[in-house]
Amino acid sequence: MISSYLTLAAVLFVIGLYGALSKKNAVIVLLCIELMLNAVNLNLIAFAKYGINPSLKGQIFSLFNITIAAAEAAVGIAILIALYRNKATANVTEMNSLKK
């Protein structure tokens, strides 16, 4: 049963990865990153029930994880809005200031 959850998490993670690297809209990129985080959470919870050393620790860890993800989403959206204000675009491909 555990491998089914893990495989599902892998599918979710890869879809999130693909979206994060292919989408042009910065908001969607953030959403895809959330997707990847959720895949990780699913893994942690699955291990909490079916792992080698099952305990509640996995659930608590994923709780922290969700908190971090919330913080990340908030900061991400804030940065996005600030960027949009300065550059008038939410397009990831135009955010190439690193090159300059």
């Binding site: 990865l17 690297l21 990831v92 955010m95 190439n96 200031s97 690193l98």
Partner: peptide, 14 residues
């Protein structure tokens, strides 16, 4: 590769 696009960097890392 050094085009300043985070997505390219991510792809290369992958």
């Amino acid at each position: 590769m050094q085009n300043g696009q985070v997505q390219t960097y991510g792809l290369v890392t992958l």
